[in-house]
Amino acid sequence: MSEPKRAQAFINRLRRLNGEPAAGAASSDTPPRHAGAMAALRHSLAFDPGTYLKAFPYVEPFFAGESACSNVHRKAYYVVAGLYALHPVQSDQPFATSLARLALSRARKGGSAEGVETRLMALLGAQAENIPQYLRQLMALLASEGEGCDYVALLDDLCLWMNPAAPSERLDHVRQKWARQFYQLAGSVDEPSDAAKKSDQPETSSKG
């Protein structure tokens, strides 16, 4: 199975565990929610990725026939499984864009948006072993506002980002992409971007 197909199949599996139809499936094809599975995956975030045994049944089938020692994507799958169980809201927008929307929402409500930006910058500068911790913090922030993200895209990026053998220029590309996605929408958290200001303006009728 190619990596993109495996990633999509994996997210579809997580959706079914949460009692949602897989992407592209009819809304009537809704499976029962497996609360125990979601709890196990959520709890796995407290452990190093790929070490919490109760999470194995939901991830390891996607790596059948592959060596646990040599596979570099396995940890990313465990991390995303835990994050999805923490906040199972799938959307079409990248993770960093969702954070930008969260920052702008907080700023508009008179709260502080700096915490979102600070945590994102800490993530972008983190070593591979610390990435899950920062992602968990940021996902908890998204959950507090009900802001979803594209889990397939997140998984794709983490498969590279958490690979200790990945070339530095490819890692830099991922970090720069996330920074662009955040700042192209949020601009400065102290002053909303032009795009954000326009989104706040009421629509005017074209009728006379």
Results as ranks from 00 to 15, higher is better:
Ala96Thr: 11
Gly115Ile: 04
Ala100Ile: 00
Ala107Arg: 10
Arg119Tyr: 06
His87Asn: 00
Gln133Thr: 02
Pro94His: 14
Ala81Trp: 13
Leu104Arg: 15
Ser105Ile: 05
Ser98Thr: 11
Leu86Asp: 11
Tyr84Lys: 08
Ala107Ile: 02
Leu83Ala: 05
Met121Phe: 10
Phe95Ala: 09
Arg106Trp: 15
Ala103Cys: 15
Gln90Gly: 09
Arg119Asp: 12
Gly125Thr: 05
Tyr84Met: 02
Ala107Gln: 15
Gly111Pro: 01
Ala113Trp: 14
Asn130Arg: 08
Thr97Val: 15
Arg119Pro: 01
Met121Leu: 11
Pro94Gln: 13
Val116Pro: 09
His87Arg: 00
Leu104Val: 13
Glu129Thr: 05
Asn130Tyr: 04
Leu123Ala: 08
Ser105Trp: 01
Leu99Thr: 14
Ala128Lys: 09
Phe95Gly: 07
Ala85Phe: 10
Leu104Pro: 01
Ser91Arg: 13
Arg119Asn: 04
Ala122Phe: 08
Arg101Asp: 09
Gly82Cys: 04
Gly82Thr: 09
Ala103Glu: 15
Ala85Tyr: 10
Gln133Arg: 03
Ser105Ala: 06
Leu99Arg: 05
Ser105Gln: 11
Ala81His: 01
Pro94Phe: 14
Ser112His: 01
Gly125Ser: 03
Leu99Phe: 03
Leu83Ile: 05
Lys109Leu: 01
Gly125Trp: 01
Pro94Glu: 15
Val79Met: 03
Val80Lys: 03
His87Pro: 01
Met121Val: 15
Pro88Met: 06
Gly82Arg: 04
Thr118Glu: 12
Leu120Glu: 01
Pro88Val: 05
Ala128Asn: 07
Asn130Ala: 10
Arg119Ile: 05
Thr97Ser: 15
Asp92Met: 09
Leu86Glu: 14
Val116Asn: 02
Leu104Trp: 12
Gln127Met: 03
Thr118Trp: 10
Gly115Trp: 07
Thr97Phe: 09
Ser91His: 13
Asn130Cys: 01
Ala100Glu: 08
Leu120Asp: 03
Pro94Ser: 14
His87Tyr: 01
Arg101Pro: 07
Leu104Asn: 12
Val89Asp: 08
Ala126Cys: 00
Pro132Lys: 10
Phe95His: 12
Pro94Met: 12
Arg106His: 08
